[in-house]
C-alpha cells in the first residue's frame, strides 16, 4: 500500500528529473518557497523602491511620475538635524526622534526585565509552570486587545485614576501628558512582549550544563560571580537574539500604541511606522512616495543596526 502511494507521488518527479536532470532537482523543491518569498517579500520591496522614487497620489505604479531621489531629499532637508523644527518634514523627524527614545528605553527595560524574570522562573519554586504561563499570556493577546485593556486602566476616568482618587490622590493625565504618555507606551509595550523574550532566555538558561554550577558550588563561588562568569557568557547567544528581535520589534512599534494613544498628545508618541502609515494612507491625499522613502530609510537603519548587533555578538562569542 505504502509502495503504491510512493509510486503515485514519484512519477511526476521522476518525469521532471528526466527532463531537467538530477542537478536541477533541488530548485524544483525550493520553487514553492521561492514563489511565496518572491510574491510577498521581494515584489513588495521592489514596489516600495518604485514608490519611493515616484510622486503623486496615484496608487497604480504605471501612473506615477518618476522623480528620482526627490522624496529622500525632502525627508533629509533639515537646517539642523538636532532641531526638528528646522526640518522641511518636521513630523518625520519628530517620529524618528520619538522612535529613538522609545527604542532606547523599551529595549533596555525589556532585556533587563526579561533576564531577571527568566532567572527567577528558572529556579525551582512552587507554581513555576503557572508563573511561566502568566508571563507568556500577554503575548497571546491581540495588540488591539492589549491597548484597549490599558486604555481602560489609564484614561482620565480609568481604573488607575479611580484608585488614586479613592485613596485621596489627584487624577493624573496618564494619556494626556506627553511624558506620561511616552512612559506608558514603553510600559505597555514591555508588558505585551516580554513573555516571548523570557521564553527565549529561559530556553538558554536550561541549556547551560548543570555540572558547571555544581563545580562552582563546590568551589564556593559567590552567586554574583556565578552569574557573571557562567550564566551570562553562556546566555550571550540568546541575549543577542533577544536584543536583535527586541530592537527590530521596537522600531516597528505601531498597533498597540496607535490604539492606545493615537500618537498623541500632539506627536509625543507618534513613532516612525505611524508616520509612514498616516502619510501613505490616512490623509485625503495619499503621499505614498514620501512614506515609501521614509520606510526605506528606516529599513536601511535597521539593517545597519542588526549587522552591528550580530557583529558584536560574534565578537562576544570569540
Amino acid at each position: 500500500m505504502r509502495a503504491a502511494l510512493a509510486r503515485l507521488i514519484d512519477w511526476p518527479f521522476e518525469a521532471l528529473q528526466r527532463a531537467l536532470g538530477a542537478a536541477r532537482m533541488p530548485y524544483v523543491f525550493v520553487l514553492p518557497n521561492l514563489l511565496v518569498f518572491g510574491i510577498f517579500v521581494v515584489l513588495p520591496m521592489l514596489l516600495n523602491i518604485w514608490y519611493a522614487t515616484t510622486s503623486g497620489a496615484e496608487l497604480m505604479p504605471g501612473q506615477r511620475p518618476f522623480t528620482g531621489l526627490a522624496n529622500f531629499a525632502e525627508l533629509l532637508d533639515c537646517g539642523n538635524y538636532l532641531n526638528v523644527a528646522s526640518c522641511r518634514q518636521d513630523r518625520f523627524w519628530r517620529s524618528v526622534d520619538n522612535t529613538l527614545w522609545f527604542v532606547a528605553f523599551q529595549v533596555i527595560t525589556m532585556v533587563v526585565l526579561s533576564l531577571i524574570t527568566a532567572l527567577v522562573l528558572n529556579r525551582k519554586m512552587a507554581l513555576r509552570g503557572f508563573f511561566r504561563a502568566v508571563f507568556f499570556y500577554p503575548v497571546l493577546l491581540s495588540p488591539v486587545v492589549v491597548a484597549l485593556i490599558w486604555k481602560w486602566i489609564l484614561q482620565p476616568d480609568g481604573v488607575l485614576n479611580a484608585i488614586l482618587v479613592a485613596n485621596g490622590g489627584q487624577r493624573v493625565p496618564f494619556l494626556l501628558d506627553p511624558s506620561w504618555s511616552f512612559f506608558w507606551t514603553v510600559v505597555v509595550s514591555v508588558w505585551a512582549h516580554m513573555g516571548f523574550y523570557v521564553l527565549i532566555l529561559l530556553a538558554g538558561l536550561q541549556a547551560i550544563p548543570p555540572d558547571l554550577y555544581e563545580a562552582a558550588a563546590m568551589d564556593g563561588t559567590p552567586q554574583w560571580r556565578v552569574f557573571w562568569r557562567i550564566t551570562l557568557p553562556l546566555l550571550m547567544p540568546n541575549m543577542a537574539v533577544v536584543l536583535v528581535l527586541g530592537l527590530i520589534r521596537a522600531v516597528q512599534a505601531f498597533d498597540e500604541i496607535y490604539v492606545l494613544t493615537g500618537g498623541g498628545p500632539g506627536t509625543a508618541t507618534q513613532y516612525i511606522v505611524q508616520y509612514i502609515y498616516e502619510t501613505a494612507f490616512a490623509g485625503q491625499v495619499h503621499i505614498m512616495g514620501l512614506a515609501a522613502a521614509a520606510s526605506m530609510l528606516v529599513g536601511g537603519v535597521l539593517l545597519v543596526l542588526t549587522l552591528l548587533q550580530l557583529l558584536a555578538s560574534a565578537r562576544a562569542k570569540q
Binding site: 482620565p156 494613544t261 500618537g263 498623541g264 498628545p265 509625543a268 507618534q270 505611524q274 490616512a282 490623509g283
Partner: peptide, 10 residues
C-alpha cells in the same frame, strides 16, 4: 481629553 487624547489627523 478630546484634542489631546489622540495624535495626527485622527
Amino acid at each position: 481629553a478630546i484634542w489631546g487624547s489622540v495624535g495626527g489627523a485622527a
